[in-house]
Design a protein around this nucleic acid. Sequence first.
DNA 1: TGGAAAAAATAAACACTGTTTATTATATTT
DNA 2: AAATATAATAAACAGTGTTTATTTTTTCCA
Lengths: 205, 205
Amino acid sequence: MGITERKTKEKTELKALIMSAARSLFLERGIGETSIRNIAERIEYSPATIYLYFKDKDEILHELHSQGFREMGAQMGVLMAVSDPVERLKALGRVYIDFARKNTEMYDLMFIAKAPMHYLEKMAEEKWSEGKTTFEFLSNTVAECIAAGRFAGHDADSLSFMIWSCVHGMVALEIRDRCKGISGETPQEIFRGAFETFVKVIEGL
Amino acid sequence: MGITERKTKEKTELKALIMSAARSLFLERGIGETSIRNIAERIEYSPATIYLYFKDKDEILHELHSQGFREMGAQMGVLMAVSDPVERLKALGRVYIDFARKNTEMYDLMFIAKAPMHYLEKMAEEKWSEGKTTFEFLSNTVAECIAAGRFAGHDADSLSFMIWSCVHGMVALEIRDRCKGISGETPQEIFRGAFETFVKVIEGL
DNA sequence: TGGAAAAAATAAACACTGTTTATTATATTT
DNA sequence: AAATATAATAAACAGTGTTTATTTTTTCCA
């Protein structure tokens, strides 16, 4: 089936082309300032063509959000080399915060924006697999810490959720511009202090 | 000056009418689904009239966001009655989380949405006074704890930012639908566990 | 009290947005 | 080469925030 094969290849290629145009525009100008027409213009196709490859804009944003999770997952994956679970947990916090601050638009899409979640609702999916996988990486590490006799009196899931909330809260506040003028420090200083505190708290648990 | 007085009164009255229509629509349908035309229709004025009272939509959203801070401030204010700063800190966490979960659209506008911050940018204001005031309520309480010999080895500002990030992170993840399918628990259970952990961590610092 | 001046409200337009439908162009099959 | 299936698009629809020119209403003063 040489011909239908080429056909499907062309289909996935144009789909990938749309994705890459969407992504670059998205990183350049932000999610709110990227329209279907912008994407179509960049790849020199008509706007309507995009709808032959994606159901709607939310589907594109969801796919981009999944890309982000794959990239973040790759960065977190190398932490498996850290054998001590407490050290791994601290490094995980560091990697998470770094990823968020170096890829703010991606992080926004992954954890803050509403749009990519609408895709799940339309598909009647109730589970957020990307988030679940990432959370399990954290909760497994926390469970290892507990198994090693640390974090006495804490439940792995609740503590994991609190740790996640803690690092997410930091970067979410900065990404959405809620740190301006707080305690007169620069973002650099705020995050240095915040991460130091994070590490101290983890060690003191 | 009875007449110019009445004039300014009418101006502030229509301004208040616009605000209340904006707010009710906003709470009914959400921020993203409330347009200037919707607001105008509800108060039976033309859309253009709204622009005689507000510079743009961002100004309305900023004013609404400030309303939210006044209401949250009122709820936090009663905590001044709690003399023990550590107890006050825990109660503050409780009040913060409760406010966020009972007023999700308002909380969204106050701490997550981009729109109300654009107003500050347009006005060339670099300080976010509402956020600063709220943060100072927290950081003063933390400073009191430290003065009372608690939280040894911690910097008041950094620890305050971490505590804020922690509670903000929790509610922000839920508001933007990032808790679905995480550890199979209901939001109720997740938040009960998270707050218990929060209290335990505070007490153990 | 009637007409000029000032203020308030609006209709209509502009430039966008996501999305759909009917039409045209291209490629494949018979 | 003609018929069919596929791909791409032009144009439209209904919506958005916002601005400009126009009309209505109110105030002021002769």
